[in-house]
């Protein structure tokens, strides 16, 4: 069953546009939503949550259209925007007291169990929490109202490596039961190397690819060749850079002939992102 099904979403702004954004997330998996700053990650997430009016397209969550069942589905969604704080001068206990009135399936027992697990002190104010603790608080709230889909916008941004690692472990333990699915956007690709099952890559408002992580990486090759070999592949390269040793460039695996003699390797997610960004620069 699909936890999230985004189909041909289009949304035009003055200087930016989401173009035919489509991807699917299977129930019980983690999908990393990657792209450079300004690529359209947050706009896509806001479109999923019906915060932005779509020009066209369809978003289905747990099999139901978001546009028709927004209230019902929001009961089953937990979301967090990593860089936005709410009511920071309020204590956790006070904020929770308000939030829980919005959810039919709120479970105090689960909530306190997560507070304990995440070592959150109810008497602390939101402003007193570290960035990582704020994300954990959001997770505790989402899980206490029985959220089946967690939509998290840059939850790991601003966290130190230890806190990030801790959070990624939590994500993996949450999906282990097969009931909860997570879509999280990030530009920190190492997070995804560690815990994502699927990758959706957005660039300039368009989905470049959405696939199983290994399959995604395997669909590209990073080439390392002499400058004299560049002409053989130049037209097929997504982008490349030339240095005193030759050139390095990214190419789709299907466009690369392994018998060409050019050295190739599997790129990391970061390298894929960087070379796509270079392609954009070249077009500007």
């Amino acid at each position: 069953m699909l936890a999230l099904d985004v189909q041909n979403v289009n949304k035009k702004f003055d200087r930016f546009q989401l173009k035919n954004v489509s991807f699917q997330l299977e129930k019980g998996y983690i999908m990393g939503f990657i792209g450079a700053n300004g690529a359209g990650k947050t706009t896509t997430i806001k479109s999923i949550l019906n915060m932005t009016r779509l020009d066209s397209g369809d978003v289905r969550i747990l099999g139901k259209r978001m546009a028709d069942h927004e209230l019902e589905l929001k009961q089953a969604i937990g979301c967090a925007f990593g860089d936005v704080d709410f009511y920071t001068r309020s204590k956790i206990s006070k904020l929770t007291e308000v939030i829980k009135t919005f959810y039919k399936n709120w479970d105090d027992e689960t909530y306190y169990a997560y507070l304990k697990r995440f070592k959150l002190d109810e008497n602390k104010k939101i402003a007193e929490l570290s960035t990582g603790m704020k994300v954990k608080y959001n997770l505790a709230v989402a899980l206490s109202h029985g959220a089946k889909l967690l939509v998290l916008d840059e939850p790991t941004s601003g966290l130190d490596p230890v806190a990030r690692d801790d959070l990624l472990d939590i994500f993996q333990s949450l999906v282990a039961g097969g009931e909860i699915s997570i879509l999280f956007s990030t530009h920190i690709t190492s997070d995804l190397e560690k815990c994502a099952d699927f990758i959706t890559y957005i660039d300039n408002g368009q989905i470049i690819d959405s696939a199983d992580k290994e399959e995604f990486k395997a669909s590209y090759r990073l080439l390392n060749g002499k400058e004299s070999e560049l002409d053989q592949v130049r037209s097929k390269l997504i982008s490349y850079r030339v240095n005193s040793f030759g050139f390095t460039g990214l190419i789709r695996a299907k466009d690369f002939d392994p018998d060409s003699g050019i050295r190739s390797a599997l790129p990391s997610l970061e390298e894929i992102m960087v070379y796509y960004a270079k392609k954009e620069e070249a077009h500007v």
Binding site: L49, M51, C79, D85, Y103
Partner: peptide, 14 residues
């Protein structure tokens, strides 16, 4: 200043 608009929009309300 407390980002009430985004906070409220995330809740299940019309």
């Amino acid at each position: 200043s407390q980002n009430d608009l985004l906070f409220t929009s995330m809740m299940p309300v019309t």
